[in-house]
Design a protein around this nucleic acid. Structure first.
Length: 424
RNA sequence: GGAGAAGUGGCAGAGUGGUCGAAUGCACUGGUCUUGAAAACCAGCGAGGGUCACACCUCCAGGGGUUCGAAUCCCUUCUUCUCCGCCA
């Protein structure tokens, strides 16, 4: 959520920047500003009314104490009208505040200057490409076939137990999953990210804090009885650790990592793109998050990109990095880099990480601030990225490393797996 | 799940209807002293709205109510603690 004070101050610049998202924000911004003016005017009127009635109350108090009951009772009569007025004003104020809030919820974050214009993922800018695309022999199998051949992932079984998109990992497949999780967590903690293990169900306030609510309500599984949501990403519980906090400047930066299963309803997506591991309702992901001083967040984003890069290179998976264009940029982000690995049998690039700088957008909803040493408080910047999402890494490993009668395990993972190949 | 108790500033902890945004201690920040540090002493020290700056307004777990006036009384939700039950 953008700050209304910033909108007021940078109105034109914001409208221009939001055009990159192919959004004509002018009407929304105008409405936000006029609603805010209304809000402030109502607030002032209410304050004055309350001030008057506070004053009267004090007078009544001292009259009672000095035994002037008659005069006190006379004054009491006057307070009734003030009370009525302040009730009306505060109702109006509340309504205006709610309206303003609703408007602000619908305005996406301001893209940074470097974000390219564009409408869809086709306009994303490839900023780096690394590794040689493996050329597999004819008859190379996509991972869903390999999964069956070596009996390491069972999609039908998941169907039986739960439904589509909930695979069962078996034998060496299960072990490889666990190896990847541990490997990623180790890489992240080595880089200074503190490991957290967090709840997989969150309350409504947490959903609002990181921006999944109200925009993406339909994306999350909702547990009605207890009004809780299954997390779509570890970003939600981990970022919300700091919801409402006022940090000391010296506590920054904060860097955290966590592994969680992620649950996404992905309503209405079927077809070739979602075969096998490409898109699931439940999947594993290791996330990295940072809370930064505003002056440092740009550098922090770069550092996160380098970190993810290093992991992919160690796994020897060919990848490319995309800078998302305005049309593809997430609602809450100012700048996002996507990592895609090449899945050789599908001959497709698969997104395995998304690294974003949200600047104050989340912090404003979270009320996550720090003392800036200048006698003031300031919103912190939040960033997060996947390091990394498992299923598509798994898919790429299986496909790219397949040999005639087995699948090799990337060197870096062998100590974690305890075996160097998958075979029957 | 049942019975009881409690939720106050970064922490501890006073405050049971008016002068309380809140004593006191610790922590923290600045200063004096010191070669430096510690100790001691002095001063400052919650947040949000609003204002050029003041004024002013709001916040004592959340929500609602009683009252001219609520941290204080009532209702309700949540959380914590103690005891009991259940249980990985």
């Amino acid at each position: 959520m953008l700050q209304i004070a910033a909108i007021r101050e940078h109105k034109e610049a914001f409208i221009t920047a939001l055009k990159k998202r192919n959004l004509d924000a002018a009407p929304l911004i105008e409405k936000a500003i006029t609603t805010d003016e209304q809000r402030r005017s109502l607030q002032t009127q209410l304050d004055e009314t309350l001030a008057e009635s506070n004053k009267l109350s004090k007078e009544i108090g001292s009259l009672f104490q000095s035994g002037k009951k008659e005069e006190a009772n006379q004054l009491k009569g006057k307070t009734g009208e003030l009370k009525q007025r302040s009730k009306t004003l505060s109702d109006q104020l509340q309504q205006t505040v709610d309206t303003l809030q609703e408007i602000l919820y619908t305005i996406p974050n301001i893209p940074q200057d470097t974000v390219p214009a564009g409408n869809s993922d086709e306009d994303n800018e490839v900023v780096a490409e690394h590794g040689i695309l493996p050329s597999l022999p004819d008859g190379a199998a996509p991972h869903w076939e390999l999964a069956k051949t070596y009996d390491i992932i069972d999609f039908e079984l998941g169907n039986k137990i739960t439904g589509a998109g909930f695979p069962v990992y078996k034998r060496q497949g299960a072990r490889l999953q666990r190896a990847l999780i541990n490997y990623f967590l180790d890489k992240n903690t080595e880089a200074g990210y503190e490991e957290m293990q967090v709840p997989l169900l969150v309350n409504e306030a947490s959903g609002y804090g990181t921006g999944q609510l109200p925009d993406k309500e339909g994306q999350m599984y909702h547990v009605g009885n207890d009004d809780l949501y299954l997390i779509p990403t570890a970003e939600v519980p981990i970022t919300n650790i700091y919801r409402g906090d006022l940090l000391e400047q010296k506590e920054l930066p904060i860097a955290m990592t966590g592994y969680t299963p992620c649950f996404r309803r992905e309503a209405g997506s079927y077809g070739a793109d979602v075969r096998g591991l490409n898109r699931l309702h439940q999947f594993d992901k290791v996330e990295i998050l940072r809370i930064e001083h505003p002056d440092k967040s740009d550098g922090a984003l770069d550092a996160m990109v380098v970190h993810v890069k290093n992991i992919l290179e160690e796994l020897e998976l060919p990848y490319r990095i995309l800078r998302l264009c305005g049309g593809d940029l997430g609602f809450t982000s100012t700048l996002t880099y996507d990592f895609e690995v090449y899945s050789a049998a599908q001959k497709k690039w698969l997104e395995v990480s998304s690294v974003s700088n949200f600047k104050t957008f989340q912090a404003n909803r979270l009320k996550l601030r720090f003392r800036n040493g200048d006698n003031g408080t300031e919103l912190a910047h939040t960033l997060n990225g996947s390091a990394l999402a498992l299923p598509r890494i798994m898919a790429a490993i299986l496909e790219n490393y397949q040999k005639e009668n087995h699948i090799d395990i990337p060197k870096a993972l062998i100590p974690y797996c305890g075996f160097d190949r998958i075979e029957n």
